[in-house]
């Protein structure tokens, strides 16, 4: 698996899009710091961007990489290599290279700005951690979708719809249901609702850490009240881990049964 990972990774690292992605974050973080002069505020703004953009890029890259390397995958399948190694290697290759673009793109400006002297370092680290989690989750989901769809256009369509649903529509529906059922106790429902969406979960996780009650919203407040800050943190990280593990296991299962 590590050989495939290595080659997928280097293949991607040299592609133009990795640089575009890296430079975008570099520019974004630099501009934010330049305009804000405040690390904590920059972290909040970055969070809002990362939470929507990272899933989108993870999804698109994952689907694109899978379909583009299809013939190459066939070549690998004819070699004496285990099937699961091929797909896991490719998946980790994509996820790791995207994470690296994110980490370097945002990390470098913050480091130059003097992150280590600031007390925002933990908030910042958590932001990067969730960014990496979201990359791994959405790349894995993208691989799942493309493994299940032979048709490229269909695969792309489903993947983008999945992103749209989790990043935008889900929140709307969630809010709507909270408003409609406001006469009932909704604590548990909203907790479960948050856990079921990695985007929401990441947002809550960061806001919990940043401790900005104004932005916390209803679910965040319930979260905090229910678990307290620390338990809440560990719990949400745990759930994010599950969000990575389940799709990855499905990649392995799906790859084993597929014809090429």
């Amino acid at each position: 698996m590590f050989k495939i990972l290595k080659y997928s990774f280097f293949d991607l690292v040299r592609s133009r899009w990795s640089y575009v992605y890296f430079l975008f974050y570099l520019a974004l973080a630099s501009v934010l710091l330049f305009l804000n002069h405040d690390l904590s505020k920059a972290v909040i703004t970055l969070m809002n961007v990362i939470i929507v953009l990272v899933p989108l890029i993870g999804t698109i890259f994952g689907v694109m990489y899978y379909y583009n390397s299809k013939e190459f995958t066939e070549l690998l399948l004819a070699q004496p290599i285990k099937r699961s190694s091929i797909f896991l290697g490719q998946y980790f290759g994509v996820a790791v290279s995207l994470s690296l673009s994110l980490l370097l793109g945002i990390g470098i400006p913050f480091l130059l700005y003097g992150l280590f002297e600031s007390d925002a370092i933990w908030d910042f680290s958590l932001l990067l951690l969730t960014g990496v989690f979201l990359t791994f989750i959405f790349t894995a989901i993208a691989f799942n979708i493309s493994l299940s769809n032979e048709n490229k256009i269909k695969g792309f369509g489903y993947a983008v719809m999945m992103w749209l649903f989790l990043a935008v529509i889900y929140d709307g529906l969630f809010l709507l249901s909270l408003v409609m059922f406001e006469d009932y106790p909704l604590d548990k429902l909203s907790l479960i609702g948050t856990m079921l969406n990695p985007v929401d979960l990441s947002r809550t996780l960061i806001l919990l850490k940043l401790d900005i009650s104004a932005l916390l919203g209803y679910t965040g407040a319930v979260f905090k009240q229910f678990f307290g800050t620390n338990v809440g943190l560990f719990l949400s990280i745990g759930v994010l881990c599950i969000w990575v593990i389940v799709p990855v296991l499905r990649i392995v299962a799906k790859a084993k049964k597929k014809d090429f």
Partner: peptide
């Protein structure tokens, strides 16, 4: 999957990762 060590295969459509150089592909 180990039996595939005994088989060499030439696929119908030759499409390899476009970022790799020929030398690197052979090496890989």
């Amino acid at each position: 999957w180990t039996y595939r060590e005994k088989i060499d295969y030439l696929p119908q459509i030759a499409n390899f990762p476009s970022n790799l150089k020929v030398q690197e592909l052979i090496h890989m």
